[in-house]
């Protein structure tokens, strides 16, 4: 197990830096994670993150782009605006969730 210090507290991370224990995440940690990858969080980001967290909680999987659009109401276009280039992975990182595993 690997532990890193973010905002002065210990969090478990994998070799890339993704949190491995979603319960160690909170919204203030998200601000730092987002800043790490050059994203300034807005309310639109935060509501996408909240849906991703809630969806992970209920289905046990990080939502894909498709699921963000159909179940989360965040369109694919908007996801690319909020988290450029690699939206699903960046969202997962900032939300303290594992990378999505779904193909679509």
């Amino acid at each position: 197990m690997t532990v890193a210090t973010i905002q002065g507290r210990d969090v478990h991370v994998d070799v890339e830096g993704f949190l491995t224990d979603p319960t160690e995440w909170d919204e203030s940690l998200a601000e730092t994670l987002a800043a790490n990858i050059g994203i300034d969080l807005t309310d639109r980001h935060r509501s996408a993150i909240r849906f991703a967290r809630a969806d992970f909680e209920s289905v046990g999987e990080t939502p894909t782009l498709r699921r963000m659009a159909t179940a989360g109401g965040v369109t694919t276009k908007e996801m690319f605006e909020l988290f450029p280039k690699k939206p699903a992975k960046k969202l997962a990182y900032v939300a303290g969730l594992p990378k999505p595993v779904g193909c679509v």
Binding site: M1, A4, T5, I6, E16, G17, I37, K85, K86
Partner: peptide, 11 residues
């Protein structure tokens, strides 16, 4: 293992 530096994914 306690890391000195926090890893950040290379996107």
């Amino acid at each position: 293992t306690y890391l000195q530096e926090t890893p950040v994914p290379a996107f």
